[in-house]
C-alpha cells in the first residue's frame, strides 16, 4: 500500500510539473495584463506540435527540437499579442477574455489543419520503466521532472537577477508606479509573452511525452492549469509552481477513490474550495 502511494506521488509530481509550467504562464500574464488567458492550453498544444515537426519531421535531436519549439511558441504568443490583444488592451479585461477564448479555437483549428486531427506520438513503442524498490519510473518521467526543475530554476534566476525580470515583478505589483519610474511597459509585456509562451510549449511537450499528441490535449488541461494558478494565488508565478504540484498530486491520489476520468473534476473541486476559503490563493495572489 505504501509503495502504491509513493507511486501515485511520483505520478502526481510528473503531472504537477506539467501543470506548474502551464500555470506559470497563466499567472504571469494575469499579473502583468490582468486577464485570464484562455488560449493558454492551446498554446501548449501548439508547442507540442511544433516539437513534433522539428523532431519527427526534420529529425532534429529532441533537446534541439524542444528549444526550437519553445522559441516558435514564444514568438507566436508575441505575434498574437501584437495583432489582437494589444489593440484590445484599452478596453475592459473581459473583452480580452472573450478574445482569448476565440484565440483558443483559432489555434486549435490551425493545429488540426496543419497536423491533422488524430493522435500522434514522438516515439512509437513502449518505454520500459526502471524498477527501484518496487517503484516503476519511466525514463520519460525523470526527463519531465528534471526538465521542469531546470526551467523553474531558470525562471527564478530571470525574475530575481535580471533587470527585465525585476521590472516584470514590479509591473505585476503596481502597473501605474512601473510607468512612473520609467519602465517601458510594452517591452515588459513582450517579455511576459515570450516566457509564458516558452513555458506553455514546454508544458505541452512534456504532456505529449507523458501521454500523446492530440489537437485538444491543451484545452483539456486548461482547467487544471487555471486551478493550479488560482490555488497558488493568481499573479504569483512562485505560487503557480506550488499550485501545480498540489493539483497534480491531488489528481493522482484521487484515483484511489474516484474513477480516473474525473481527475479534472478533482482539480475543479479543489479550486472551488480554495476560492471559497481563501480567494487570494495559498500564496496571497490578487483577488
Amino acid at each position: 500500500m505504501a509503495i502504491e502511494l509513493v507511486q501515485l506521488l511520483i505520478y502526481g509530481i510528473v503531472l504537477g510539473s506539467i501543470l506548474a509550467l502551464g500555470a506559470i504562464g497563466v499567472s504571469l500574464v494575469f499579473g502583468i495584463l490582468r486577464f485570464a488567458h484562455f488560449a493558454h492550453g492551446d498554446l501548449m498544444t501548439l508547442g507540442a506540435f511544433f516539437a513534433f515537426s522539428f523532431y519527427v519531421g526534420l529529425a532534429l535531436p529532441m533537446p534541439v527540437a524542444f528549444v526550437f519549439a519553445c522559441a516558435a511558441t514564444a514568438l507566436t504568443a508575441v505575434v498574437i499579442d501584437a495583432l489582437v490583444y494589444r489593440r484590445l488592451r484599452r478596453t475592459s479585461p473581459v473583452i480580452l477574455l472573450i478574445s482569448s477564448f476565440g484565440m483558443a479555437l483559432i489555434l486549435r483549428s490551425l493545429v488540426q489543419l496543419i497536423w491533422g486531427p488524430s493522435n500522434q506520438v514522438y516515439d512509437p513503442g513502449i518505454q520500459f520503466p526502471y524498477l527501484i524498490w518496487g517503484l516503476r519510473i519511466k525514463p520519460d518521467q525523470v526527463t519531465i521532472i528534471v526538465g521542469a526543475l531546470v526551467l523553474v530554476t531558470g525562471l527564478h534566476l530571470f525574475l530575481q537577477r535580471t533587470r527585465i525580470g525585476k521590472a516584470m515583478r514590479a509591473m505585476a505589483d503596481n502597473i501605474d508606479l512601473a510607468r512612473i519610474v520609467g519602465i517601458d511597459t510594452e517591452r515588459v509585456v513582450i517579455w511576459t509573452w515570450l516566457i509564458a509562451g516558452a513555458m506553455a510549449a514546454a508544458a505541452g511537450i512534456f504532456l505529449a511525452i507523458d501521454t500523446r499528441l492530440h489537437p485538444i490535449m491543451g484545452w483539456r488541461l486548461l482547467l487544471p492549469v487555471f486551478a493550479a494558478a488560482i490555488v497558488g494565488g493568481i499573479g504569483r508565478p512562485y505560487g503557480a509552481i506550488a499550485g501545480g504540484l498540489v493539483i497534480g498530486i491531488a489528481q493522482e491520489f484521487s484515483t484511489l477513490v474516484l474513477s480516473p476520468s474525473y481527475k479534472t473534476a478533482v482539480a475543479f473541486g479543489l479550486m472551488v474550495v480554495v476560492l471559497i476559503v481563501r480567494p487570494t490563493g495559498l500564496f496571497g495572489g490578487r483577488r
Binding site: R163, K166, A167, R169, A170, A172, D173, N174, D176, L177, A178, V181, G182, I183
Partner: peptide
C-alpha cells in the same frame, strides 16, 4: 501606492534607476 510591495527595499531602489 508608491512602493512595489513584493519587491525588496533594494529592488525598489534599483527600479528608480531603471532608465
Amino acid at each position: 501606492d508608491n512602493v512595489f510591495p513584493s519587491l525588496t527595499v533594494e529592488e525598489n531602489l534599483e527600479m528608480g534607476a531603471y532608465v
